[in-house]
Design a protein around this nucleic acid. Structure first.
Lengths: 229, 229
DNA sequence: CGAGCGATTGAAAAGACTCAACCACCGTGG
DNA sequence: CCACGGTGGTTGAGTCTTTTCAATCGCTCG
């Protein structure tokens, strides 16, 4: 219903691909990838997949941002990760045979390609270096999540907010961070009201600037000191 | 220094292997595995590896329990996982080339085999079904950790304790749960004192029995209701 | 028998959440 | 062009959970 066709990006000159796990593909493989993938435009807040549904393939983010989240008992979202350009989304569930354990939703207008499970698994089986890249990625994420767990368990909300802002800085690069207060709170793992109060504190302490909805980090080192890891 | 030689267990009749990722190995592969692995006895509190050091291979737990943990800023442990019999430990870091992001320590007297990185990676490359098992395992753990993060972020300490007790029940099976209060607190992500108070509550509410240091779950359904997921 | 670690308890303080109300901006329809 | 409704943002007050600190207890290992 919302598949307004976006420009079909070729994998060959896809900037995002170059830093991605597909980056080391030789021309032949890129050809193949380019034929197999389909391209779609996603509106803000449009879902890619839902927790509990069965995966049919992986998504590759050409342009935009996507939040990966779970839902707790009362339906409250917990954001686990925000994917940026070049990221492959949903490949974890390609291997387990289980339904998705997380949901994914576009945070802004995004251009996202899709590769069918069969094609993806075929790449994994036949391309050892790609496979190793995927395994490395799985391992890295596992390590990241261990740190995340530790932060959640041991840091104050204030420290966690500093951590998350630094992570977001890396994702948004030179752009301003553009998330609803609720999404940000659901990433930090706190109540929206608490988050708002802390943002105000951070502003007063000169760590950030608030441009209505968007955030700009103006004292990265200060945040690093505050975050403490 | 503490390598009191334990009985050398053969992979062929290793009970733990049968439920493990090595379980589907054919006889030839088991032979090979058996020759490659070395076997060692670990005392309680003896470390397998430390965060930051470089992995030289993987560990396979024949008998005992091993805690996997990180350390937060002030050195406080956060337990991420407790491994039981049949688990392969440390294979995540085989792929990334990075040093360990977590530490591992035996929680009780354990018998643990070791497989050199080279041999392990060779198995991965040559044995597709084993490889798939490993990838499935990586994915499963990723999913588990997403749940863990959500629990940490959204549940009260009381609910988290219920969750963790249920997880421990699955690991310890019919045995009583045998952890220091501090380890348990570091798993739940709370202060030791808070944990002790909650254990007392749980006892008074008829969920558990406390035998000095050991815990026994006597109302699993109650805990499930309390944990709420 | 004594040292020391792990377990326990109490009291006070801090951090975070909830609830309730209010504001501000934005797009819509009249 | 303006009033209206709605969503997302903000603020305040009160409450509750959880932590911290300090002290005590009890068991076990040399």
């Amino acid at each position: 219903m919302s598949d307004k066709s976006f420009k079909h990006v070729s994998c060959h000159n896809c900037e995002a691909r170059k830093d991605s796990l597909f980056g080391s593909f030789c021309d032949n493989h890129v050809d193949e990838l380019n034929e197999q993938k389909s391209c779609a435009y996603y509106k803000k807040n449009q879902g890619l997949f839902l927790d509990g549904s069965f995966p049919r393939g992986v998504f590759c983010l050409n342009k935009g941002k996507v939040k990966i989240f779970t839902r707790g008992e009362e339906g409250k979202e917990q954001i686990i990760h925000i994917a940026g350009e070049g990221e492959i989304i949903g490949f974890r569930s390609m291997f387990s045979g289980d339904p998705y354990s997380v949901s994914a939703t576009a945070l802004e207008e995004s251009n996202i390609c899709f590769i069918a499970k069969e094609d993806f698994l075929n790449m994994i089986d036949t391309n050892a270096s790609f496979r190793n890249g995927i395994m490395r990625e799985l391992s890295k994420e596992l390590a990241e999540r261990a740190v995340f767990i530790t932060n959640m368990a041991q840091k104050s909300v204030r420290e966690r907010l500093a951590c998350i802002l630094l992570i977001l800085k890396d994702i948004y690069k030179e752009e301003e961070i553009n998330l609803t207060r609720e999404d940000l709170a659901n990433y930090v793992g706190t109540a929206t009201e608490t988050l708002i109060r802390l943002l105000k504190d951070f502003k007063e302490e000169g760590f950030i600037e608030i441009h209505t909805r968007k955030l700009e980090i103006i004292n990265k080192d200060g945040l690093i000191r505050l975050a403490g890891n």
